[in-house]
Write a protein that binds this DNA or RNA. Structure first.
Lengths: 127, 127
DNA sequence: CTTGACATTTGCCAGTTGGCAAATTATAAT
DNA sequence: ATTATAATTTGCCAACTGGCAAATGTCAAG
């Protein structure tokens, strides 16, 4: 299965690169084969919970953080999301709320500041 | 494959019974086939993260909670949040919630993705 | 340019997941 | 008990996961 907008893989890869690890090294530490790790990074495989748990710690992710990321970023959009009006715009996504509430209010507002900035940039570029 | 001490299945089943749902009804709501749900309940299948996520909401479980129950997660709370009292307010600033909820969920999640990336960069730079 | 040493990707395939439909079992109602 | 109906389980199999080994890509040193 290929995930065309492979956010999860990109995040994993970014973190591996940041930590200066090769696939082989991450494989040694996590016990997951380098080939499989590579396929996860480029969205050719969707890792099982078992694998997610193995790679969470070596990548400095909280386990549940990685699970939540994987769940929400998985290739198949949730039908529930489409059917349930409470999940569409006008409401705050529960996952987003959960993650943000872990941050100090200062950080929360900074995030909003960045969002506003990006929107302004986008607006001015489309004129 | 059979899980001899099938705690997870029992908990899932208990919750389904409590909510007065049949396998068929839970299947309709969650989008997971009744046969598969049945096999999960009696420990003949280990649900993927994808399936876990689908059934969490209809059963009134938080996703992390369900992952923990599934035995994939350690039950330890997040280290960062626990050790640093100034770090988390534990709640979402109302202004932040108001602004973010005006964006599509997709954007909301992208914002979180950016935040995560920035945190990872910061973490690796301070080592 | 070539060699050698790693790093990453690909080919292959055994094992597992999860859906569909048929079979079986439980539950009512007469 | 008998039939009808709903709920659950089983048989089957297409699709996916993840490991191993081979192939390919990358790059620094000679």
């Amino acid at each position: 299965m290929v995930d065309s907008s492979n956010d999860f893989g990109r995040i994993i890869k970014q973190q591996r690169i940041t930590l200066q690890l090769t696939l082989q090294q991450l494989a040694d530490v996590s016990g997951v084969s380098p080939s499989h790790l590579g396929r996860i990074e480029r969205g050719e495989r969707f890792p099982s919970a078992h694998i997610l748990r193995k790679i969470a710690q070596p990548l400095n992710f909280g386990e549940d953080e990685l699970f939540t990321l994987a769940g929400y970023l998985s290739s198949e959009p949730l039908k529930v999301t489409e059917k349930d009006p409470t999940y569409s715009s006008g409401r705050l996504d529960p996952y987003v709320a959960a993650v943000l509430s872990q941050e100090p209010v200062e950080i929360q507002r900074t995030v909003i500041g960045i969002l506003t900035l990006l929107k302004n940039i986008g607006r001015s570029m489309s004129e």
